[in-house]
């Protein structure tokens, strides 16, 4: 049989891209962007004002939110079409339908292992949160995110950059000091504490809802444990205190969920900004950090979804039976 000769062309493309990156890195000097914890305002005037809370601005994570939801809908439509097409042919899923089915099957089995008969209640939460956070984390790695936006005058006391005309009313930053900073059009939504807090609140409230559905009012005994209060007073009091600690730990779950995702993703954009700002000329180094960000983004999406699932699974497991047994 004639041996098909594979020509390793990909490595030459990669080498070419590195050289082009080095040349472009020299011509368009990478500039250290302004790193802010809060998302930047795209328009100075507030969108609307609520009596107590105050002004609401159009911040640059909102376009990303809409973009993420649109991409999720396209993804869902593509998977659905792919599975429908394969159902009509030979029942063998291909392409995006096959890949998604494989991943969801792994997650479903994981959920079944931890949640047992409550898998049908817990699994949708796990998959939804994980896919949504995964899209949010990976979307922010696209080129053009956090690098194309609106120019603002720099606040006094902050470092700004000079600008040079590119074309029309499009400008480029130059390395010299100046009075402009950039508010990017798109900023990753997982780098916005509002998003991570909202998701954390939803997840923890959902855990309580699943707990009540599984154990009814008995779920409250996890927080207000008065079962042994009268026959074994000392241990009963200890149980009661442990119950109160459980209440505090539920609240701390919101903080841990929110700050874990936000912290990792914010550290990511700081990392990319520092490395690209200082070593942008050697485009392989920022590319390495972006690869690490890809890895952290996937891990954090999985961690957020998996922890939600495991807490829900734990909420379905009653504590009552074991005590009754002693």
């Amino acid at each position: 049989m004639e041996q098909v000769k594979h020509r390793p062309w990909r490595r030459w493309v990669l080498l070419g891209l590195l050289i082009v990156g080095y040349i472009l890195g020299g011509r368009f000097v990478p500039v250290q962007p302004e790193i802010t914890v809060a998302p930047e305002k795209l328009i100075e005037e507030p969108l609307f004002t609520l009596p107590v809370i105050g002004d609401f601005y159009l911040v640059n994570t909102m376009p990303t939110l809409i973009l993420t939801v649109i991409l999720l809908m396209i993804f869902a439509y593509a998977v659905n079409r792919s599975l429908k097409k394969s159902a009509q042919t030979d029942l063998v899923p291909r392409g995006i339908g096959n890949a998604t089915e494989a991943i969801l099957e792994v997650i479903y089995n994981m959920t079944e292992g931890a949640a047992g008969k409550w898998v049908r209640t817990v699994f949708p939460w796990f998959a939804t949160i994980m896919i949504y956070v995964l899209f949010a984390n990976l979307l922010k790695l696209l080129p053009g995110f956090e690098s194309i936006g609106v120019l603002h005058h720099v606040a006094p006391g902050h470092e700004g950059h000079a600008k040079e005309l590119l074309a029309g009313n499009w400008y480029l930053f130059t390395a010299e000091e100046g009075e402009y900073i950039l508010a990017p059009f798109f900023r990753g939504i997982s780098v916005d504490l509002n998003f991570t807090f909202a998701l954390a609140l939803i997840a923890v409230v959902a855990v309580q809802v699943v707990g009540f559905r599984a154990q009814g009012i008995g779920y409250l005994s996890k927080f207000f444990n008065t079962r042994r209060m009268f026959n074994v007073p000392f241990f009963g009091a200890m149980d009661f205190l442990v119950g109160l600690l459980e209440l505090i730990s539920e609240i701390s779950k919101i903080l841990s969920f929110a700050f874990r995702l936000f912290g990792n993703m914010f550290a990511g954009i700081v990392l990319v900004a520092i490395v690209a700002g200082l070593l942008g000329k050697f485009s392989i180094l920022p590319a390495m950090v972006m690869m690490f960000e890809l890895f952290v983004g996937i891990i954090q999406a999985f961690v957020f979804g998996m922890l939600t699932m495991v807490f829900m699974a734990q909420a379905t497991q009653g504590h009552g039976e074991e005590h009754a047994e002693h």
């Binding site: 931890a114 874990r260 990792n264 961690v303 957020f304 998996m306 699974a313």
Partner: peptide, 15 residues
């Protein structure tokens, strides 16, 4: 479930 919480919580913060 308790072991999973320990592993995932740690893994999530280590990076």
């Amino acid at each position: 479930t308790n072991v999973l919480i320990v592993i995932i919580g740690q893994v999530g913060c280590l990076t």
